[in-house]
Amino acid sequence: MKKLIILGIRGIPARHGGFETFAEKLSLYLVKQGWQVTVYCQESGTGSISTSEWNGIQRIHIPIANAGVAGTIFFDWKATVHALGKSGLFLTLGYNTAVFNLLQRIKGQTNVINMDGIEWKREKWGVFAKTWFWLNERAGCWFGNHLVADHPMIKDHLATRVSRSKITMIPYGGDCVANSTAATLDRYKLEPQGFSVIIARPEPENSFLQIVTAFSSKPRDHKLVVLGNFSPDKNKYHKQVMDAAGDEVIFPGAIYEAEVVQALRYFSRFYIHGHRVGGTNPSLVEALGAGCSVIAHNNHFNRWVAGDAAVYFNDEHDCAVLFDKYLRSDHSCLIATMRKESTRRFYEKFTWENILSQYEKLLIQWYPKERSK
């Protein structure tokens, strides 16, 4: 039986973000294919390491007393050290603490690393954090036996560090949302097609301020729903975004109910995607899976994912022009065409079945030969 050990995430079932969702999907898929899968999980508190089983997946729980970034780094360290006693193939999701993976290289363990986006370019980080991420990106390239890039541009970027032959491009996957329940919108007093939606972390590189300011520059007879954890009393940027918002902008906070988020995508006029840094963004893939028409920031990352399913803006002015043009009801035929293109692109590139089968092929290719029996 082949064994896979997953490092680099907070744990499963998914409660935090894209990598956790991917790890859950991959783990369940591989168990059905006859693999033995182990996932390291970060827990709050103190005490000894424990194990449990969830849907046939072995979970190793490591309690961490520290909160925030320090706690995550400490968890990654403890998980890496503990994993030195394991056999099989290792999959590390993200390179944020890739310096620790030197231990696995010394031990002779085979480790495939998904290199995620270009974390050190994010505006929210200070000099120390950017330096840390830059160094760990290099460490991941050096210490990983093989690398996964989730976007062709990420592969191009990594190829400036290592040989292209060391990198495989596999994008992120998503679920198809073929229908939803309009009554779900009632709690927010929304009507189908009467609103557009942003679903992202409220950070500068995701263009929240530009989008909200552009939308609020004039009355729209339309709502803009902005999902995300906002703390205007603690975060200057969050306050700027909320201060720029007009009366037609709604901030419901972060929503973790999948059926609600799916309904907000499915019934929106547009999904607004302002990400400027990164590779294949999970939220954009999920928007395609819901058949959304998209307004997106104009960069190579977004254009490769959304293609003709989106119209693109470069700055606040461009974004306002797109709102002026496409929020009018006389563009319903164009929006319907964009929605069809979203669905076509999703089934062409981003279904989970497609993505997970690509991963299994790669993992089989890199499975340690002496442990494959």
Rank of each mutant, 00 (worst) to 15 (best):
I5C: 12
L7P: 01
G11C: 01
E20L: 08
K25F: 04
V31R: 10
Q36M: 12
Q36C: 10
Q36H: 11
Y40W: 03
C41M: 00
C41E: 09
C41N: 15
S48G: 10
T51S: 11
S52V: 06
I62N: 09
N66S: 13
V69M: 12
I73Q: 10
F74E: 15
K78V: 06
V81A: 03
G88Q: 00
L89V: 00
T92S: 15
L93K: 03
N96L: 07
V99H: 08
N101E: 09
Q104H: 15
W120D: 07
K121H: 15
F133N: 02
F133P: 02
L135N: 04
G144V: 02
G144N: 04
D150W: 00
H151D: 03
H157P: 02
V162M: 00
T168I: 04
M169F: 10
P171M: 04
P171E: 01
A183T: 12
L185M: 11
L190D: 08
A200K: 10
P202N: 06
E205T: 03
S207K: 10
L209E: 05
Q210H: 13
V212T: 02
T213H: 03
A214M: 03
F215A: 05
K218M: 11
R220M: 08
P232R: 10
K234P: 05
Y237V: 07
Q240A: 11
Q240N: 14
D247N: 14
V249K: 05
V249R: 04
F251H: 07
G253C: 14
A254P: 08
E257D: 15
Q262S: 09
L264Y: 06
F267P: 09
F267D: 13
F270H: 05
H273A: 02
R276S: 14
V277F: 02
G278K: 02
P282S: 00
L288C: 08
A290L: 15
R303F: 05
W304F: 11
W304A: 11
G307Y: 05
A309I: 06
V311L: 04
H317N: 08
D324S: 15
L327Q: 11
L327P: 15
R328I: 12
S329E: 14
L334R: 13
I335Q: 14
R339V: 13
R339Y: 07
T343I: 12
T351D: 06
L356Y: 06
L356W: 07
Q358M: 10
I364W: 06
Q365V: 07
Y367R: 12
Y367M: 11
P368A: 01
S372T: 09
S372N: 07
